[in-house]
Amino acid sequence: MSAAGRTGHERDRARAGEVRGAVIADLRSTLHRVPMPRPWSPDMTGIHLVVTRLTTGDGRTGTGFSWAPWVGGPAVHALLESDVRDAALGLPAHPEVVFDRLWWHLHEAGRGGLVTIALAAVDLALWDLRAAADGLVDTLGRRRDAVPVYGSGVNRHYSLDELVAQAERWAALGRTAAKIKVGRDDLAEDVERVAAVRRVLGPDARLMVDANQLWDLPRAIRAAEALRPYDPYWIEEPLPAEDVPAYARLRASVDVPIALGENTYTAYQFRDLLTAGACDIVQPNVVRVGGITPFLRIAELARTFDVPAYPHLLPDISGQLACCLPMPAMVEDVEDASFAALGLLTEPHPIRIEGGLLYPGDHGGHGIRFDADALAATAVERPGYSGG
Protein backbone atom coordinates (compact mmCIF):
# COMPACT_ATOMS: atom_id res chain seq x y z
CA MET A 1 0.00 0.00 0.00
CA SER A 2 1.30 3.47 -0.85
CA ALA A 3 1.95 6.06 1.82
CA ALA A 4 -1.02 8.05 0.59
CA GLY A 5 -3.32 5.05 0.93
CA ARG A 6 -2.65 4.43 4.61
CA THR A 7 -5.11 5.56 7.25
CA GLY A 8 -3.99 7.92 9.98
CA HIS A 9 -4.15 5.06 12.49
CA GLU A 10 -1.90 2.89 10.32
CA ARG A 11 0.63 5.69 9.95
CA ASP A 12 0.66 6.26 13.69
CA ARG A 13 1.25 2.56 14.31
CA ALA A 14 4.13 2.48 11.82
CA ARG A 15 5.76 5.52 13.43
CA ALA A 16 5.25 4.05 16.89
CA GLY A 17 7.50 1.08 16.12
CA GLU A 18 10.57 3.19 16.83
CA VAL A 19 9.00 4.88 19.84
CA ARG A 20 8.16 1.55 21.46
CA GLY A 21 11.84 0.78 21.62
CA ALA A 22 12.02 -1.94 18.97
CA VAL A 23 15.49 -3.40 18.63
CA ILE A 24 17.42 -5.01 15.80
CA ALA A 25 16.76 -8.73 16.05
CA ASP A 26 18.40 -9.95 12.85
CA LEU A 27 20.54 -8.70 9.99
CA ARG A 28 21.23 -10.78 6.89
CA SER A 29 23.05 -9.84 3.70
CA THR A 30 23.55 -11.39 0.28
CA LEU A 31 26.22 -10.62 -2.32
CA HIS A 32 25.45 -10.15 -6.01
CA ARG A 33 27.43 -9.40 -9.15
CA VAL A 34 25.27 -7.57 -11.66
CA PRO A 35 26.30 -7.43 -15.35
CA MET A 36 26.19 -4.02 -16.98
CA PRO A 37 24.75 -3.59 -20.48
CA ARG A 38 27.05 -0.61 -20.98
CA PRO A 39 30.47 -1.46 -19.43
CA TRP A 40 32.34 1.33 -17.67
CA SER A 41 35.64 0.14 -19.14
CA PRO A 42 36.80 -2.89 -21.13
CA ASP A 43 37.53 -4.77 -17.90
CA MET A 44 34.65 -3.42 -15.80
CA THR A 45 31.56 -5.20 -17.02
CA GLY A 46 29.63 -5.57 -13.77
CA ILE A 47 29.09 -4.14 -10.29
CA HIS A 48 28.90 -5.70 -6.86
CA LEU A 49 25.67 -5.21 -4.90
CA VAL A 50 25.06 -6.26 -1.30
CA VAL A 51 21.41 -6.46 -0.24
CA THR A 52 20.62 -6.41 3.47
CA ARG A 53 17.44 -7.41 5.25
CA LEU A 54 17.03 -6.01 8.78
CA THR A 55 14.39 -7.44 11.13
CA THR A 56 13.25 -5.86 14.39
CA GLY A 57 12.09 -7.62 17.50
CA ASP A 58 8.48 -6.75 16.70
CA GLY A 59 8.69 -8.45 13.30
CA ARG A 60 9.09 -5.47 10.96
CA THR A 61 11.64 -5.62 8.14
CA GLY A 62 13.62 -3.01 6.26
CA THR A 63 15.77 -3.32 3.15
CA GLY A 64 19.19 -1.76 2.76
CA PHE A 65 22.01 -2.09 0.30
CA SER A 66 25.67 -1.42 -0.31
CA TRP A 67 27.28 -1.01 -3.68
CA ALA A 68 30.80 -1.41 -4.97
CA PRO A 69 31.21 -0.79 -8.69
CA TRP A 70 34.88 -1.73 -8.92
CA VAL A 71 36.35 -3.60 -5.93
CA GLY A 72 35.38 -4.42 -2.37
CA GLY A 73 31.98 -6.07 -2.69
CA PRO A 74 32.97 -9.39 -1.10
CA ALA A 75 34.82 -7.56 1.68
CA VAL A 76 31.77 -5.38 2.43
CA HIS A 77 29.59 -8.48 2.51
CA ALA A 78 31.99 -10.24 4.87
CA LEU A 79 32.06 -7.24 7.19
CA LEU A 80 28.26 -7.05 7.27
CA GLU A 81 27.91 -10.75 8.03
CA SER A 82 30.45 -10.65 10.86
CA ASP A 83 31.43 -7.54 12.82
CA VAL A 84 28.56 -5.31 11.73
CA ARG A 85 25.90 -7.94 12.40
CA ASP A 86 27.38 -8.88 15.77
CA ALA A 87 27.51 -5.26 16.90
CA ALA A 88 24.07 -4.32 15.54
CA LEU A 89 21.98 -7.03 17.16
CA GLY A 90 20.10 -5.67 20.15
CA LEU A 91 20.59 -2.01 19.29
CA PRO A 92 17.50 0.23 19.13
CA ALA A 93 16.07 0.47 15.62
CA HIS A 94 16.98 4.14 15.38
CA PRO A 95 19.16 5.25 12.42
CA GLU A 96 21.15 8.00 14.13
CA VAL A 97 21.83 5.97 17.27
CA VAL A 98 22.87 2.89 15.31
CA PHE A 99 25.14 4.77 12.91
CA ASP A 100 27.01 6.53 15.71
CA ARG A 101 27.43 3.37 17.78
CA LEU A 102 28.49 1.16 14.90
CA TRP A 103 30.86 3.74 13.41
CA TRP A 104 32.63 4.10 16.74
CA HIS A 105 32.66 0.35 17.34
CA LEU A 106 34.18 -0.36 13.92
CA HIS A 107 36.56 2.59 13.59
CA GLU A 108 39.67 0.49 14.19
CA ALA A 109 38.92 -1.19 10.85
CA GLY A 110 38.82 2.23 9.22
CA ARG A 111 36.83 5.42 9.65
CA GLY A 112 35.71 5.36 6.04
CA GLY A 113 36.01 3.10 3.05
CA LEU A 114 34.78 -0.44 3.66
CA VAL A 115 33.40 0.48 7.08
CA THR A 116 31.10 3.27 5.95
CA ILE A 117 30.13 1.39 2.78
CA ALA A 118 29.01 -1.52 4.96
CA LEU A 119 27.24 0.76 7.45
CA ALA A 120 25.17 2.23 4.61
CA ALA A 121 23.28 -1.05 4.24
CA VAL A 122 22.17 -0.93 7.88
CA ASP A 123 21.35 2.77 7.82
CA LEU A 124 19.28 2.49 4.64
CA ALA A 125 17.34 -0.42 6.10
CA LEU A 126 16.58 1.57 9.24
CA TRP A 127 15.41 4.56 7.21
CA ASP A 128 13.25 2.19 5.17
CA LEU A 129 11.57 1.30 8.45
CA ARG A 130 11.33 4.86 9.74
CA ALA A 131 9.75 6.05 6.49
CA ALA A 132 7.36 3.09 6.18
CA ALA A 133 4.28 5.23 6.77
CA ASP A 134 4.91 8.40 4.76
CA GLY A 135 7.69 7.55 2.34
CA LEU A 136 11.26 8.77 2.51
CA VAL A 137 10.77 12.20 0.95
CA ASP A 138 7.95 13.27 3.24
CA THR A 139 9.61 11.71 6.28
CA LEU A 140 12.76 13.74 5.65
CA GLY A 141 10.79 16.83 4.69
CA ARG A 142 9.83 17.51 1.10
CA ARG A 143 11.27 20.79 -0.17
CA ARG A 144 10.55 20.24 -3.87
CA ASP A 145 8.46 17.87 -5.97
CA ALA A 146 11.04 17.37 -8.73
CA VAL A 147 14.75 17.95 -9.27
CA PRO A 148 16.84 18.42 -12.43
CA VAL A 149 18.64 15.35 -13.71
CA TYR A 150 21.77 15.34 -15.83
CA GLY A 151 22.86 12.68 -18.26
CA SER A 152 26.16 11.04 -17.39
CA GLY A 153 28.39 8.28 -18.65
CA VAL A 154 31.60 6.49 -17.87
CA ASN A 155 32.84 7.19 -21.36
CA ARG A 156 36.54 8.07 -21.41
CA HIS A 157 37.16 4.87 -23.39
CA TYR A 158 34.52 5.77 -25.99
CA SER A 159 35.63 6.85 -29.42
CA LEU A 160 34.67 10.39 -30.39
CA ASP A 161 31.83 9.04 -32.54
CA GLU A 162 30.54 6.92 -29.63
CA LEU A 163 30.68 9.89 -27.28
CA VAL A 164 28.80 12.10 -29.72
CA ALA A 165 26.16 9.37 -30.15
CA GLN A 166 25.71 9.24 -26.38
CA ALA A 167 25.28 13.01 -26.23
CA GLU A 168 22.69 12.76 -28.98
CA ARG A 169 20.77 10.19 -26.92
CA TRP A 170 20.77 12.57 -23.95
CA ALA A 171 19.52 15.39 -26.13
CA ALA A 172 16.77 13.16 -27.57
CA LEU A 173 15.64 12.38 -23.99
CA GLY A 174 15.32 16.09 -23.23
CA ARG A 175 18.35 16.35 -20.96
CA THR A 176 19.37 19.97 -20.51
CA ALA A 177 22.52 19.05 -18.58
CA ALA A 178 25.18 16.39 -19.05
CA LYS A 179 28.60 15.31 -17.81
CA ILE A 180 31.42 13.58 -19.67
CA LYS A 181 34.77 12.15 -18.65
CA VAL A 182 38.02 13.90 -19.46
CA GLY A 183 41.61 13.07 -18.61
CA ARG A 184 42.93 11.50 -21.79
CA ASP A 185 46.70 11.56 -22.30
CA ASP A 186 46.51 14.43 -24.78
CA LEU A 187 44.70 17.51 -23.49
CA ALA A 188 43.88 18.42 -27.07
CA GLU A 189 41.74 15.26 -27.28
CA ASP A 190 39.79 16.34 -24.20
CA VAL A 191 39.18 19.74 -25.77
CA GLU A 192 38.03 18.15 -29.03
CA ARG A 193 35.61 15.84 -27.19
CA VAL A 194 34.17 18.58 -24.98
CA ALA A 195 33.71 20.81 -28.02
CA ALA A 196 31.86 18.03 -29.87
CA VAL A 197 29.46 17.39 -26.99
CA ARG A 198 28.87 21.13 -26.58
CA ARG A 199 27.84 21.30 -30.25
CA VAL A 200 25.32 18.48 -29.71
CA LEU A 201 23.81 19.87 -26.51
CA GLY A 202 23.78 23.49 -27.58
CA PRO A 203 25.06 26.65 -25.91
CA ASP A 204 22.43 26.79 -23.15
CA ALA A 205 22.89 23.28 -21.73
CA ARG A 206 24.89 22.77 -18.55
CA LEU A 207 27.97 20.73 -19.48
CA MET A 208 30.16 19.28 -16.72
CA VAL A 209 33.49 17.45 -17.04
CA ASP A 210 34.94 14.82 -14.71
CA ALA A 211 38.68 14.04 -14.62
CA ASN A 212 38.45 11.30 -11.97
CA GLN A 213 41.61 12.46 -10.14
CA LEU A 214 43.85 12.04 -13.21
CA TRP A 215 45.52 15.46 -13.28
CA ASP A 216 48.18 17.15 -11.21
CA LEU A 217 47.84 20.82 -10.26
CA PRO A 218 49.66 22.38 -13.26
CA ARG A 219 47.76 20.21 -15.73
CA ALA A 220 44.44 21.01 -14.05
CA ILE A 221 45.12 24.74 -14.35
CA ARG A 222 46.01 24.37 -18.02
CA ALA A 223 42.95 22.20 -18.66
CA ALA A 224 40.59 24.68 -17.02
CA GLU A 225 41.94 27.41 -19.28
CA ALA A 226 41.75 25.23 -22.40
CA LEU A 227 38.13 24.22 -21.67
CA ARG A 228 36.98 27.75 -20.80
CA PRO A 229 35.53 28.47 -24.32
CA TYR A 230 33.04 25.62 -23.82
CA ASP A 231 31.68 27.04 -20.56
CA PRO A 232 32.05 24.02 -18.23
CA TYR A 233 29.49 24.18 -15.45
CA TRP A 234 32.00 22.48 -13.16
CA ILE A 235 35.22 20.46 -13.26
CA GLU A 236 34.89 17.36 -11.11
CA GLU A 237 37.70 15.68 -9.19
CA PRO A 238 40.59 17.03 -11.26
CA LEU A 239 43.16 16.13 -8.55
CA PRO A 240 43.64 13.25 -6.07
CA ALA A 241 40.66 13.43 -3.73
CA GLU A 242 42.75 13.63 -0.55
CA ASP A 243 44.95 16.54 -1.64
CA VAL A 244 43.01 19.31 0.08
CA PRO A 245 45.77 21.98 -0.11
CA ALA A 246 46.15 21.44 -3.86
CA TYR A 247 42.40 21.82 -4.35
CA ALA A 248 42.44 25.08 -2.44
CA ARG A 249 45.27 26.35 -4.68
CA LEU A 250 43.45 25.21 -7.81
CA ARG A 251 40.20 26.88 -6.81
CA ALA A 252 42.06 30.11 -6.17
CA SER A 253 43.69 29.88 -9.60
CA VAL A 254 40.74 29.19 -11.90
CA ASP A 255 37.27 30.64 -12.41
CA VAL A 256 35.52 27.34 -13.16
CA PRO A 257 33.60 25.82 -10.21
CA ILE A 258 35.29 22.79 -8.64
CA ALA A 259 33.22 19.78 -7.56
CA LEU A 260 34.40 16.87 -5.45
CA GLY A 261 33.37 14.52 -2.67
CA GLU A 262 32.43 11.19 -4.26
CA ASN A 263 35.58 9.69 -2.71
CA THR A 264 35.20 11.47 0.62
CA TYR A 265 33.81 9.31 3.40
CA THR A 266 33.24 11.18 6.65
CA ALA A 267 31.77 14.46 7.82
CA TYR A 268 35.19 15.36 9.21
CA GLN A 269 36.75 15.03 5.77
CA PHE A 270 34.01 17.15 4.22
CA ARG A 271 34.57 19.73 6.95
CA ASP A 272 38.24 19.90 5.98
CA LEU A 273 37.35 20.44 2.31
CA LEU A 274 34.94 23.21 3.17
CA THR A 275 37.09 25.04 5.69
CA ALA A 276 40.02 24.96 3.25
CA GLY A 277 37.90 26.53 0.52
CA ALA A 278 38.69 23.54 -1.70
CA CYS A 279 35.45 23.27 -3.66
CA ASP A 280 32.30 24.99 -4.84
CA ILE A 281 30.11 21.85 -4.85
CA VAL A 282 30.25 18.73 -2.66
CA GLN A 283 29.13 15.37 -4.04
CA PRO A 284 28.57 12.89 -1.22
CA ASN A 285 27.72 9.35 -2.28
CA VAL A 286 25.02 8.05 0.07
CA VAL A 287 26.61 4.60 0.23
CA ARG A 288 30.23 5.65 0.57
CA VAL A 289 29.52 8.05 3.43
CA GLY A 290 27.57 5.42 5.36
CA GLY A 291 23.92 6.04 4.52
CA ILE A 292 21.23 8.67 4.79
CA THR A 293 22.12 9.67 8.37
CA PRO A 294 25.66 10.94 7.60
CA PHE A 295 24.58 12.17 4.15
CA LEU A 296 22.12 14.59 5.77
CA ARG A 297 24.74 15.77 8.25
CA ILE A 298 27.16 16.49 5.41
CA ALA A 299 24.51 18.40 3.44
CA GLU A 300 23.70 20.56 6.48
CA LEU A 301 27.39 21.17 7.08
CA ALA A 302 27.85 22.27 3.47
CA ARG A 303 24.85 24.57 3.82
CA THR A 304 26.68 26.59 6.46
CA PHE A 305 29.33 27.35 3.84
CA ASP A 306 26.71 28.15 1.17
CA VAL A 307 27.97 25.15 -0.80
CA PRO A 308 25.34 22.89 -2.42
CA ALA A 309 25.42 19.11 -2.05
CA TYR A 310 24.80 17.23 -5.30
CA PRO A 311 24.26 13.51 -4.61
CA HIS A 312 26.67 11.25 -6.46
CA LEU A 313 25.24 8.41 -8.61
CA LEU A 314 22.47 6.01 -7.42
CA PRO A 315 19.52 8.08 -8.72
CA ASP A 316 16.98 5.60 -7.32
CA ILE A 317 17.79 6.89 -3.83
CA SER A 318 19.74 10.10 -4.59
CA GLY A 319 16.78 11.60 -6.43
CA GLN A 320 14.63 11.26 -3.33
CA LEU A 321 17.31 12.81 -1.13
CA ALA A 322 17.73 15.74 -3.53
CA CYS A 323 14.05 16.59 -3.09
CA CYS A 324 14.76 17.18 0.61
CA LEU A 325 18.09 19.00 0.58
CA PRO A 326 18.30 22.52 2.00
CA MET A 327 19.87 23.86 -1.22
CA PRO A 328 18.81 22.97 -4.79
CA ALA A 329 20.72 20.15 -6.47
CA MET A 330 20.90 18.13 -9.66
CA VAL A 331 20.90 14.33 -9.78
CA GLU A 332 23.26 12.21 -11.85
CA ASP A 333 21.83 9.51 -14.12
CA VAL A 334 24.59 7.40 -15.65
CA GLU A 335 23.24 5.83 -18.82
CA ASP A 336 21.80 2.33 -18.21
CA ALA A 337 23.32 2.10 -14.72
CA SER A 338 20.51 2.83 -12.23
CA PHE A 339 19.11 -0.12 -10.29
CA ALA A 340 15.91 0.17 -12.31
CA ALA A 341 17.80 0.21 -15.63
CA LEU A 342 19.80 -2.83 -14.52
CA GLY A 343 16.56 -4.76 -14.03
CA LEU A 344 17.04 -5.14 -10.28
CA LEU A 345 13.81 -3.53 -9.06
CA THR A 346 10.15 -4.44 -9.10
CA GLU A 347 7.62 -1.87 -10.23
CA PRO A 348 6.56 0.72 -9.36
CA HIS A 349 10.06 2.16 -9.30
CA PRO A 350 10.97 4.66 -6.55
CA ILE A 351 11.61 7.48 -9.02
CA ARG A 352 10.70 8.40 -12.57
CA ILE A 353 12.58 10.62 -15.02
CA GLU A 354 10.74 12.67 -17.59
CA GLY A 355 12.80 14.90 -19.85
CA GLY A 356 15.20 16.80 -17.64
CA LEU A 357 13.37 16.25 -14.34
CA LEU A 358 13.29 13.46 -11.75
CA TYR A 359 10.16 12.84 -9.67
CA PRO A 360 9.96 10.68 -6.53
CA GLY A 361 7.26 8.01 -6.46
CA ASP A 362 4.39 7.43 -4.06
CA HIS A 363 5.54 4.60 -1.81
CA GLY A 364 6.30 3.65 1.75
CA GLY A 365 9.90 3.55 2.93
CA HIS A 366 12.56 4.36 0.37
CA GLY A 367 10.68 2.39 -2.27
CA ILE A 368 13.67 0.32 -3.42
CA ARG A 369 12.25 -3.18 -3.73
CA PHE A 370 14.65 -5.67 -5.27
CA ASP A 371 13.28 -8.26 -7.65
CA ALA A 372 13.74 -11.73 -6.14
CA ASP A 373 14.43 -13.39 -9.50
CA ALA A 374 17.04 -10.77 -10.43
CA LEU A 375 18.78 -11.27 -7.08
CA ALA A 376 18.73 -15.04 -7.46
CA ALA A 377 20.23 -14.79 -10.95
CA THR A 378 23.09 -12.57 -9.77
CA ALA A 379 23.86 -14.18 -6.40
CA VAL A 380 27.52 -14.83 -5.58
CA GLU A 381 28.48 -17.62 -3.22
CA ARG A 382 31.66 -16.85 -1.33
CA PRO A 383 33.89 -19.77 -0.33
CA GLY A 384 33.06 -20.81 3.19
CA TYR A 385 29.87 -18.74 3.27
CA SER A 386 26.59 -20.60 3.60
CA GLY A 387 24.27 -17.63 3.03
CA GLY A 388 22.03 -15.65 5.32
Rank of each mutant, 00 (worst) to 15 (best):
K179T: 00
I180A: 01
I180V: 00
G183D: 09
D186N: 05
D186M: 02
L187D: 06
E189W: 01
D190C: 01
D190Y: 10
V191R: 02
E192G: 00
R193T: 01
R193K: 06
V194H: 13
V194L: 05
A195F: 09
V197H: 12
V197F: 05
R198D: 02
R199L: 00
R199D: 03
L201W: 06
G202P: 01
P203R: 03
D204N: 00
A205M: 01
R206L: 00
L207M: 02
L207T: 06
V209I: 10
V209R: 13
D210K: 01
D210H: 03
A211T: 09
A211R: 12
N212G: 08
N212K: 08
N212R: 10
N212W: 14
L214T: 14
D216C: 02
L217S: 09
P218F: 04
A220N: 03
A220C: 07
I221Y: 11
I221H: 08
R222T: 14
R222G: 09
R222H: 11
A223M: 09
A223N: 04
A224W: 14
A224E: 04
A226D: 03
R228G: 02
R228I: 12
R228L: 10
P229H: 10
P229W: 11
P229N: 05
P229S: 03
Y230N: 07
D231W: 11
D231G: 04
P232T: 08
P232E: 07
P232G: 06
Y233Q: 04
W234M: 03
I235E: 10
P238L: 12
P238A: 12
P238G: 09
L239N: 02
L239T: 04
P240C: 02
P240S: 02
P240N: 03
P240T: 04
E242L: 08
E242W: 12
D243A: 04
D243Q: 02
D243C: 01
V244F: 04
V244N: 01
A246R: 05
A248I: 10
A248R: 06
L250N: 11
R251H: 09
S253R: 14
D255N: 10
P257L: 05
I258C: 10
A259T: 11
A259K: 11
A259H: 13
L260I: 11
G261R: 12
G261L: 02
E262D: 08
E262H: 12
N263C: 08
N263A: 07
T264V: 15
A267V: 15
A267L: 15
A267S: 15
Q269P: 13
F270M: 09
A276H: 07
A276S: 07
A278S: 13
A278H: 11
C279I: 07
D280W: 10
I281W: 11
Q283L: 02
Q283F: 01
Q283E: 13
P284K: 09
N285T: 10
G290Y: 14
